[in-house]
Design a protein around this nucleic acid. Structure first.
Length: 459
RNA sequence: GCCAGGAUGGCCGAACGGUAAGGCGCACGCCUGGAAAGCGUGUUCCCUUUGGGAUUCUGGGUUCAAAUCCCAGUCCUGGCGCCA
């Protein structure tokens, strides 16, 4: 949530920022509601002040036993009460509407964010690992074909048990998934992160705290209710990213500077509806309804947040460097920022298996495996995340940041494609081998369960 | 799931329906040669800030007036039950 006082003091700055985002917000109406609300609030406070004085008088009249004066004062108080009710009913209604609308106003981009309408205007900062590529993209089998050949990814049966967009990992595929999670978390623990294993369902209140609600209800899976129906604060949703439980973990709390910076990492499965996202660009496991992810969440003092963003990006990149996977860093433009973010870097790994138009000249394509974002105090305001700058001072909103560290399926895609060998096997990156019990190559295995489908080989 | 008890500031903890005690921590000031002690101030939110309003878990209700009484809910603790 943006600061209301900014809206009052410098509405034009807010307007410009929202225009740069391409956000559709009726600012004038918002300002008008705010002004009207303040008038009513002032009037209500005044009336309450009067009544408080009368009530106080009644107390002393009762003590003195002045019956007549007391009855008179009670009459006066009753009249004030009725008036207060009228004024405050209107003020509450407006206040609620204001709050609701404020929840739909996106974050103001940082000044350093490049101007632009959409992803075409994102700026590529740099690339890593392209100097000495180990493969030629033309000769790479896409992960969904390879996964089937090696019998490590089973999309069909995932669709059978659960639905399209869900898949089984089998054998070395499943083992690779577990290995990657442990591997990533070990890296980040070295970087000073404290592990968390959060609850997977989260409340509407939490979803609102990080910015998924109210605008993006359709992206998430709701438990026990239709997405179209009204929801309550306590209703549950399946975690769309560990950012939600972890950021909201300290909701309505006040931290001390000694606690900051606070760095948490959490592995969770993530669930997203991804409505309408089907086609050649999403074949295989690059866009699925359930995927695992290690998430990095930072709570910092405001003046540190932009330095922290650079470090956070580096902490996420470290995973790809150790996996020897080529990648690039994008700086998202104003129009491509997510709702809550003031500045975002994307990390895109190179997946050479499918040649796409917007991929690099070497062929293949880019896959987003992490977004590192500074939300400044946007989530802190919504979730009530504060800290005390000095022990004796009053509490202020802190800044939150997060980055994936990293999204598992796409990293797996990159490994299966970039570390693929000519004979159709996959070399496990050296740093990951200890997590696979020393195994160096994924060779696939005899098909499991094929006989049940009538395709089994007879001995 | 059932029964009982509980929720008050950063922390602890009082309050016959009538101004929300007191203590601790922390910071600053006074005092001091310096410190401790002592004294003072501050340590939620909102508004139009020399002022006012709200705030005793949340939401309703009774009342001129609710931390206090009533109803509903959330969470915590204990006991019983169930359970991987």
């Amino acid at each position: 949530m943006i600061d209301r006082s900014l809206l009052r003091e410098d509405p034009e700055a807010v307007r410009e920022a929202l225009d740069n985002r391409g956000a559709d917000v009726d600012l004038d109406e918002l300002i008008e509601i705010d002004e009207h609300w303040r008038e009513l609030k002032a009037r209500g406070d005044e009336l309450r002040h009067e009544r408080n004085q009368v009530t106080e008088r009644i107390g002393s009249l009762v003590a003195k036993g002045k019956q007549d004066e007391k009855d008179e004062a009670i009459e006066e108080s009753k009249e004030l009460k009725a008036e207060i009710e009228d004024v405050e009913a209107e003020a509450t209604e407006l206040g609620d509407e204001l709050r609701e609308r404020m929840l739909e106003v996106p974050q103001i981009p940082d000044e350093s964010v490049p101007l632009g309408l959409d992803e075409r205007h994102n700026v590529e900062d740099r690339r890593w690992g392209f100097d000495d590529l180990r493969v030629d993209a033309d000769e790479i089998t896409p992960h969904y074909e390879l996964g089937e050949e090696l019998d490590i990814i089973d999309e069909e049966r995932g669709a059978k048990t659960t639905g399209s967009g869900f898949y089984f990992l089998k054998g070395d595929g499943a083992r690779l998934e577990h290995a990657l999670i442990q591997f990533m978390m070990d890296i980040h623990r070295e970087q000073g992160y404290v592990d968390l294993f959060p609850p997977v369902p989260v409340t509407s209140k939490s979803m609102r705290g990080t910015g998924q609600l109210p605008k993006f209800a359709d992206d998430a899976y709701r438990l026990g209710g239709s997405n179209d129906e009204e929801y309550e604060d306590d209703d549950l949703w399946l975690c769309p990213t560990a950012e939600v439980p972890v950021t909201n973990m300290y909701a309505d709390e006040i931290l001390l500077t000694d606690d900051l910076p606070l760095k948490h990492q959490a592995y969770t499965p993530n669930f997203r509806r991804e409505a309408g996202e089907h086609g050649t660009e999403t074949r295989g496991i690059v866009r699925v309804h359930q995927f695992n992810k290690v998430e990095l969440v930072n709570f910092v003092e405001p003046e540190d947040s932009y330095d922290r963003l650079e470090s956070l990006l580096d902490e996420a990149e470290e995973v790809l460097r150790q996996l020897e996977l080529p990648y690039r860093i994008l700086e998202l433009c104003t129009g491509d920022l997510t709702f809550a973010s003031a500045k975002t870097y994307d990390i895109e790994v190179w997946a050479p298996g499918d040649d796409m138009d917007d991929g690099p000249e070497e062929g293949g394509r880019w896959l987003e495996v992490s977004s590192a974002s500074n939300f400044e105090d946007f989530q802190a305001r919504r979730a009530g995340l504060r800290y005390r700058p000095e022990r004796h001072e009053s509490a202020e909103y802190l800044h939150t940041l997060n980055a994936s560290g990293l999204a598992l399926p796409r990293v797996m895609v990159a490994i299966l494609e970039y570390h693929q060998n000519e004979d159709g096997t996959v070399t496990i990156p050296e740093a990951l081998q200890p997590y696979m019990g020393g195994q160096e190559v994924i060779e696939g295995h005899e098909k499991v369960g094929e006989s049940a489908l009538g395709a089994g080989e007879q001995e």
